[in-house]
Simulated scan of single mutants.
Amino acid sequence: MANPRAGEVAVILDGTRQVMKLTLGALAELEEALGCDSLAALVARLEGGEVSARDVLALIVAGLRGGGWQGRTADLMAVEIEGGPVEAARLAALLVARAFGEAA
């Protein structure tokens, strides 16, 4: 079960529930994946209103890795995310909100 107060978000991948969390290590990976040189730059990019599918995928991967998943981005390319791309984007946004203090 995902704990919103701990910044966790649940996602269903190929019918299996996984927990995502943006730990410090996951945020560092995310900065690198998105080419941001600071946490402030990362947040500005995500709040900029033009988040790409690549950004959503990077957020999901970082969150999964922060939750203990050992996979890589390539592993997620063939996985079905329950709810499709719209749900993936919603979960990515929720993950960011919870990482920065909103237990929504």
Rank of each mutant, 00 (worst) to 15 (best):
A2G: 00
E8N: 01
I12F: 06
V51M: 06
D55M: 08
A99K: 08
V51S: 04
E8T: 00
E31V: 03
A41W: 00
L76W: 14
G25M: 02
T16V: 12
R72G: 11
A28C: 05
K21G: 04
A74P: 13
L91K: 14
V96H: 11
A2D: 00
M20R: 01
N3Q: 09
A88K: 11
A74E: 13
E82A: 12
L13C: 03
L59W: 02
L42W: 05
D14S: 04
L24H: 09
L91P: 08
E8A: 00
A89K: 03
A26H: 03
A99Y: 07
A10E: 12
E8W: 00
P4D: 00
V11D: 07
Q70W: 06
L42S: 09
E87N: 15
V96T: 12
A104L: 15
A93R: 14
R72I: 09
L13E: 01
E87S: 15
F100R: 14
D75H: 10
D55N: 09
L27T: 13
G101I: 07
G67M: 03
V19Q: 06
D14M: 02
D75Q: 07
V86K: 14
A58G: 01
A62T: 09
A104V: 15
A78W: 12
G101N: 09
G84I: 13
L39Q: 06
P85R: 15
A41P: 01
S38V: 01
G7A: 01
A10S: 10
V19T: 11
A58V: 00
R98I: 13
T16H: 11
L13T: 02
D55W: 07
L46K: 03
A26N: 05
L64S: 08
L27D: 06
V11K: 09
A58I: 01
V19F: 03
I60P: 05
L13N: 01
C36E: 06
G25Q: 02
A104W: 14
F100I: 14
I12K: 09
V96I: 15
V9N: 01
V56H: 02
E80C: 05
V96M: 12
L42Q: 07
A6W: 05
D37K: 07
L94V: 13
D55E: 11
G101E: 08
G84A: 13
M1V: 07
E8R: 00
E80L: 08
A58F: 00
A44I: 07
L34F: 04
R72Y: 10
E32P: 02
G15A: 07
M77A: 11
Q18K: 15
A99M: 09
E31M: 10
G35C: 11
G101K: 08
S38F: 00
T16M: 11
D75K: 07
V79K: 14
V61I: 12
A97T: 15
V43N: 03
A40E: 05
Q18H: 15
D37Q: 09
V96G: 10
R54H: 10
V51T: 06
P85N: 15
A93D: 14
